[in-house]
Design a protein around this nucleic acid. Structure first.
Lengths: 195, 195
DNA sequence: GTCTATATGCTGATAGAC
DNA sequence: GTCTATCAGCATATAGAC
């Protein structure tokens, strides 16, 4: 127990990313030092560089992993159906997924400006792909005649902002369950875009 | 011209806050140094401490000033009327005000975690007062029978998140004017909360 | 009121022992 | 793979000259 030196490559690697995730979400990328991350993992600062070339890569890897998992999980849950049904699926999926990953979501929205320009471009492209999935649903609903779409891009951004906002106030121990919150938001989204 | 020393108290004070506002909004509080702020103002770092006791006070003063101006301006624009009319006023005011102050808004939402606990309490109280104004309108609309309110707190947070989100994508040189954007958002808000 | 100089400590990252 | 030691630089904030 409490071995202070030796080989831990199989467990230390994931622990570095986990520690960075938690600390970046809590204090912000710029305010967290490599020494703080190392302390959280239980190694010295120099050892971190066996797992990441630099601090920027930690942030980029966390954000890329989050966005790709978001897109992949969404693909798995995607079912054909009417625009209304697809919009309900998207709404409930987005809320549930975001409530389950509050740290990742927080970083993905707050730390964009701390990415290098090249890394920013990659993350923005992934985010745009996700937004486009919602926009496609809204456009399909307009074709079906069930949605009133003035400018599908704006309505897309408005719906996503509303849904993502749930992460800023929801607490699992609060008076409403995630399922109840889903229901209330779905009511609002449905009415907001319907004819 | 280019006087490098002397007395500028009347103009330097505001310039310090302005520089901090711009730099904090662009790079984030933690990533901006007092030297950067001083350089932007055109003085040496030590001179800043004639105008602020420390860096934290710069952030706190910016956020407090923003929240108080938001509340004051909202009070000036507030007119009696039906809940529907008041909600329209709130919606259009919120969008216009936030589009006109993108730097302040960005800081007010992104830098909360960089406030000391005492300062955070003050800012949160001001923000809560603003949110309560919207919640009161929604509750009044429920009493009038025109709004369908399941949980007025959640609907309040959902509407504010949707409206504030406009600052993340709106560009003055884009294809839509602020007034057009106001109209689209008002349509969505009205439908989202109506019976 | 601003300057220069400085105190004190932390930063990201690297080198070499084990 | 992790350690200790270290580099070169920047951080906030202060002291005292002008």
């Amino acid at each position: 127990m409490a071995r202070t030196t030796g080989s831990h490559s199989d467990i230390t690697g994931p622990r570095v990313l986990d520690a960075a995730l938690r600390l970046f979400a809590r204090h912000g990328y710029a305010a967290v030092s490599m020494r703080q991350i190392a302390k959280e993992v239980g190694v010295q600062a120099g050892a971190l560089y066996n797992y990441t070339p630099d601090k920027q890569s930690l942030l980029f890897d966390l954000m890329k992993r989050h966005m790709q998992e978001l897109l992949d999980t969404r693909s798995d849950h995607c079912r054909p159906g009417t625009a209304l049904k697809q919009l309900e699926d998207f709404t409930r999926f987005h809320i549930r997924y975001h409530l389950d990953r509050s740290d990742e979501v927080f970083i993905a929205y707050m730390e964009l400006r701390n990415l290098t320009p090249e890394n920013f471009t990659v993350i923005e492209a992934l985010r745009r792909r996700y937004e486009n999935e919602l926009e496609t649903i809204l456009q399909q609903g307009a074709v079906e005649g069930v949605f009133a779409i003035t400018d599908s891009r704006i309505e897309t951004m408005a719906v996503i902002a509303m849904l993502t906002g749930v992460t800023t106030w929801y607490r699992a121990e609060g008076r409403l369950s995630a399922t109840e919150v889903e229901g209330i938001y779905w009511d609002m989204v449905r009415k907001a875009v319907s004819v």
